[in-house]
Design a protein around this nucleic acid. Structure first.
Length: 208
DNA sequence: TGCCAGGCCCTCTTTAGGGCCTT
């Protein structure tokens, strides 16, 4: 896939964004033509408390957040970095709600759709042992990007997975124009119907 | 006060339930 896509990952102190549940770190891997070409990463201090279980999971402590820049500054910078670039994430429904929530606090509305590497990998890589980001990375022998459950390492893992999914579509179905809009369309086709749908797309494409 | 996600996907389904995935 040649198109530039911004793959994002949030670390947070909980599951549902709100007054006491906020992003604690953001990572963005800008992927283009199968390579990560640019990166953005920052901890952010939203004034929330991180429970011990999540401190252990992410390695992000309350002391680290105390010293981090304010969430509003970080998110404003992240929004400038991403601009209008199409977005992707692993289990995008999670990162999308935090992206939308954090930007809404700045009065910014998202303009672009999210592609989801979880939905796409369930459809295109059904033979994987499971569809956790770490499992898929090891199973597909994708590069080690650093400590799991840190935002930039996970964003780069998801970026590599996105590239693998694009390559899978190219090699298995010989589709010439794989772009973000196609990926967003594919993730709305049910897993049971994806193969016939792709074969139909292939039949409509001129031979390459 | 007490509770606390939610969308997707499969199946022993559709008048439902439970596992997956994210922190």
């Amino acid at each position: 896939m040649r198109q530039r896509v911004a793959v994002i990952d949030f670390e947070t102190n909980g599951i549902t964004p709100g007054r006491d549940c906020r992003a604690t770190e953001i990572g963005v891997a800008m992927v283009e033509d199968g390579r990560v070409v640019d990166r953005f990463q920052s901890l952010m201090n939203a004034g929330v408390w991180v429970p011990p279980m999540i401190e252990r999971l992410t390695g992000i402590s309350n002391a680290m957040l105390k010293a981090a820049p304010p969430a509003c500054e970080v998110m404003a910078e992240a929004a400038r970095f991403v601009g209008d670039t199409p977005l992707a994430a692993h289990n995008a429904s999670f990162d999308r709600k935090f992206w939308d929530h954090e930007l809404s606090l700045l009065g910014i509305a998202r303009r672009q759709d999210f592609a989801c590497t979880l939905l796409l990998s369930r459809r295109l890589l059904p033979q994987a042992p499971d569809h956790k980001l770490g499992t898929l990375t090891r199973w597909a022998k994708l590069p080690d990007t650093g400590r799991a459950h840190r935002a930039l390492a996970d964003a780069e893992m998801a970026a590599n997975l996105l590239t693998l999914l694009g390559d899978t579509l190219s090699s298995q179905y010989r589709l010439p124009d794989i772009d973000h809009a196609l990926l967003c369309k594919l993730q709305t086709v049910t897993a049971a119907k994806i193969k016939p749908y792709l074969l139909e797309l292939q039949a409509q494409c001129p031979a390459v």
